[in-house]
Simulated assay, not measured.
Amino acid sequence: MSQAAATSTRFTGRTAIVTGASRGIGLAIAERLVAEGAKVVITARRQEALDQAVAQLGPEHALGVAGHADDADHQAEVVARAVDTFGSVDLLVNNTGINPTYGPMVDMDLAAARKIFEVNCLAALAWVQQAYRRWMKEHGGAVVNVSSVAGLRPAPGIGFYGASKAMLTHLTQQLAVELGPDIRVNAVAPAVVKTKFATALYEGREEQVAGAYPLKRLGVPDDIGSVVAFLLSEDAAWMTGQLLVIDGGVTLTGGV
């Protein structure tokens, strides 16, 4: 993390909810926000993993609440605990995403497709609704949705995942129109980032995969955390409904 990030206080007095944040991109986002003064409430399915992440972030700065991202009761609990513990819900990052299947969509189990839609799209909308009703409607705020370059063009093997991320991008734009001027809603679209979630995309052949990227490396979680923090901050005060592609240049060469 840069010295500038370590000394910035642009999120002092603000509280963020980051979903899917016990590790990987979500945890890197939470770390960046805490480093810049925020309090964070992080979510994931397992409390043990969240407890480890909170210890890393600092218990005085973070709270972990376990549950399923698409569960309405969990969503309501997280928002309520953020307000009760830290006093507000100023920032929301919808980072949770799943892709439990691989292969052509014509052979896809439709139950898996429904689950991907529920978690990657509908849950993101639900989290915005919860934060809006409890805090942001009266106080304003900023939202960032974590999409994917797979949503920009056909992605062999992960087609429905890509379709869900394309929908998430559209939801971002629609919410930006509906919630302005006091709530900004933006999105990021990472390419392959070195996380447990993406291991199958590069394990054992990282150099080969990275060779297609003009910057000649895969992403790391901090690459995403820094851009998300920018979009949540007042440095991006005149940006809403935007999708920032964070991809090491790979989409310039036709890759996903």
Rank of each mutant, 00 (worst) to 15 (best):
N99V: 06
T96Q: 09
M167Q: 12
T253Q: 11
A126R: 07
D109P: 09
E206L: 02
E77S: 13
A131D: 03
R133M: 03
L252T: 13
Y213W: 02
G157H: 11
D182I: 11
V18H: 07
W135A: 02
P221Y: 04
V193T: 15
W135L: 04
A113P: 11
V93K: 08
Y202A: 13
A66T: 04
Q52S: 12
K216G: 03
L175P: 08
S164G: 08
E178D: 14
Q208W: 14
S88D: 05
E31D: 14
G157I: 12
L201M: 15
L244G: 02
M239N: 01
V188T: 03
D247P: 06
D90Q: 12
H61F: 13
V83E: 11
K194H: 09
E206Y: 07
A112L: 15
V209P: 05
A16P: 12
L243Q: 13
T101F: 05
A21I: 05
L33Q: 09
E118S: 15
D73H: 14
Y213G: 04
N99D: 15
V119L: 00
F11M: 14
A142D: 13
M239Y: 12
V78A: 11
N186C: 13
V220Y: 02
V65H: 12
A55K: 15
K165S: 01
S22R: 13
P59E: 14
Q129D: 00
I25L: 07
G204S: 10
L218T: 01
A187R: 09
G255H: 15
H74K: 07
K39D: 03
Q56M: 10
G225V: 08
A111G: 02
A82N: 09
E31I: 00
G254V: 01
N99Q: 13
A131R: 06
V34C: 10
E138M: 04
V193Q: 08
A53R: 12
V93A: 10
G24E: 09
D182Y: 05
V18E: 11
S8N: 09
V256D: 05
G151Y: 08
D70W: 08
G151S: 09
G162K: 14
T101P: 02
A113F: 11
I42F: 01
L179K: 01
A62M: 04
V65R: 13
A124K: 02
H61R: 13
N94Q: 04
Y102V: 15
F230S: 13
R134C: 05
F11E: 05
L171Y: 07
V41P: 00
I29H: 08
E207R: 14
I25Q: 10
V144R: 00
I98F: 06
T15Q: 03
R184Q: 10
L218K: 03
Q173V: 12
V18D: 05
G204M: 08
V245W: 07
A166K: 02
H74M: 14
V119T: 08
A66F: 00
A142K: 05
T96L: 09
V79T: 14
